[in-house]
Amino acid sequence: MGRSGVHAGAVLGLTPPVGITAPGWTTDTAAAWVRACARVIAANRNYLTALDAAIGDADHGTNMDRGFAAAVEKLDETPTGTEPSAVLRLTGMALLSTIGGASGPLYGTFFVRMSKACESKAELGLGDWAEALDAGVEGVVFRGRAEAGDKTMVDALLPARDALRAAAKDGLELAAGLAAAAAAAEEGMRATTPMVAKKGRASYLGDRSAGNQDPGATSAYLLLKAAADVWG
C-alpha cells in the first residue's frame, strides 16, 4: 500500500469540505465508491493474499478481487435507480454469491445491512452514513460473532463506526467524517498486528498469529479509505 501511518488529526486537517453540489451521497456516488473499492482491492490483491498466507490460507486477495469485479459487472448491467441503497444491495448480493470463504457472508452482510438502513433515501448525509455504517458493522459482528480484539475485520470496522458516529454528533462535514472513519480504520488495522487471533483460520496458529497484520482488517480499511477518497 505504501502508506505510512496517517494520523487521524492530520487527515482531518487536510481534508477540505467538498461535495458542494450535493449535500450527500447519491446513487452515482455509491456506484463510484463500489468501483473505487474494486480498483483498490485489485491493486492490493497480492498484498492481501500475502498477508493471508502468513496467518490464513492465502486466498483473501483473490476472493475479494473476484467479488468486487462481479459487483462492478452487476453495476454495469443493472439500472440502479435513484436510491443509493439499491447500489449497496446489489453489491452485497454480488459479494455474497462470488467471494466464498468467511469474507463472502461477512462483506455481503455488511453491504446488505447498510442498504437496508438507508432504504428510500435519495441522498446520504453524514447522519445517514453513520446509521448505515452502524447497521453494516452490527451485521458483521452478528454474522461472524467476533469481538473487538479478536484480530478480525471488526477491529478496523468498530473504530471507523465510532469515528463516524462522533463526527455526526459533532456536526462535521460528510467528507471530514468519512476521512476520520478511514483514519480510525487504519489505526485499528495496524493495531491488529500484535494481536493473537481468536476467530477464523488464523486462530489455529495461537501465539504464532501475533506479529502479522490481519488481512480482513486490511481489506476493511481499504474499503473505508475508498469511501473517503470518493467523497474527498
Binding site: N63, L96, S97, G100, G101, G104
Partner: peptide, 9 residues
C-alpha cells in the same frame, strides 16, 4: 467452492 474457499450460500 473455489480452491480452499468455502462455497457461497
Amino acid at each position: 467452492g473455489q480452491v480452499f474457499t468455502s462455497p457461497t450460500p
